[in-house]
Design a protein around this nucleic acid. Structure first.
Lengths: 166, 166
DNA sequence: ACTAATCCCATTGACTCCCATCATTTCCCA
DNA sequence: TGGGAAATGATGGGAGTCAATGGGATTAGT
């Protein structure tokens, strides 16, 4: 799986469009749908966003729960609050007002890669709420046990190149 | 699996017709029948609706239950109360009075995508009964362990496009 | 013949495509 | 290694397209 990493700040134009950073777009190219699935974050004044592959995993997890169960209904609330935002030919999406309001985003949007998914923040809010997390992690001396190395699957008929997913 | 996500509110005209939101219609295009299977929810004042694929799964699940069991009888009632609603050439369906009454729908219908299936609500009822579910999920700090990443099946001779499952 | 359902066409407003501009970054060559 | 040219990603805006909607006309059913 290609990885979503780093931060990018892009401008929102008067039509409400904002460019999805090219490195992120490239990740979604390999998926059935080029665009974002986005919903308001539970934990932060931010937008949670992901590609179709990740969203499909989320839906699959919900699908495993019994029909009509309380748990399934609660989690379905996420899906009901999710917006499907296709990229235009220029690689831009339109963030709906509901999401903008939740995140307090006005003129600019900060895209923060989180590996498999990403978040979208108001830059000022991010600086206030999120950047301290890095310092916190450093101060606490965070440790992490990694899963074992997986053998790289050989792409059918293709040779690996140096740039990644070309 | 194609995903049904997000909410859409559409008007019901004086003939009782309402447009099925285009993103949902697109999902059903890939299935044998373009339209809805719909029955009254027994948990909510709402209509449960789905495409042919999901309905087939539901029937298969009921089929697995022991013949003459109480459970099978109960769930079969769902099937007996299900309406098959084809889309017209404009992508609209006519919701029968029985379903409208159950959901208290009059002028507008709210379509809520829930992954594999969807619900249809009266907008005001939804705001009162359903929107709190999102807040509840947030308050409970819902967490969800996702199933492992599945390898993406290679579409036969097809290249991914930007519009999704058109 | 009357009722009801479906098809077909027109309207409208939002959305998306396309094109132009700009700011960088990358590449190439001296 | 500096400068300039070409390529690329981000941005802005005009116009054509499409989804939603309304209503008349046609067909089916009783």
């Amino acid at each position: 799986m290609a990885l979503l990493v780093g931060r990018h700040v892009n401008r929102i134009d008067r039509k409400g469009r904002v460019s999805v950073p090219k490195p992120f777009r490239d990740v979604f190219q390999g998926q059935g749908f080029v665009g974002l699935y986005a919903y308001p974050s539970f934990k932060y004044p931010a937008i949670e966003a992901m590609g179709e592959d990740f969203m499909a995993r989320l839906v699959a997890a919900i699908d495993d729960l019994p029909l009509y169960s309380e748990e399934r209904d609660d989690l379905s609330a996420i899906v009901e609050n999710t917006h499907r935002l296709p990229c235009d030919t220029e690689g831009r999406v339109v963030l709906p007002p509901e999401l903008l309001d939740h995140a307090g985003i006005t003129g600019e949007a900060l895209f923060a890669g989180r590996g498999g998914a990403l978040q979208i923040w108001d830059p000022a809010t991010y600086a206030r709420d999120r950047e301290p997390a890095f310092e916190r992690a450093r101060a606490r001396g965070v440790t992490l046990r990694l899963p074992p190395q997986q053998p790289r699957p050989v792409p059918p008929g293709g040779t690996p190149d140096s740039t990644g997913e070309g």
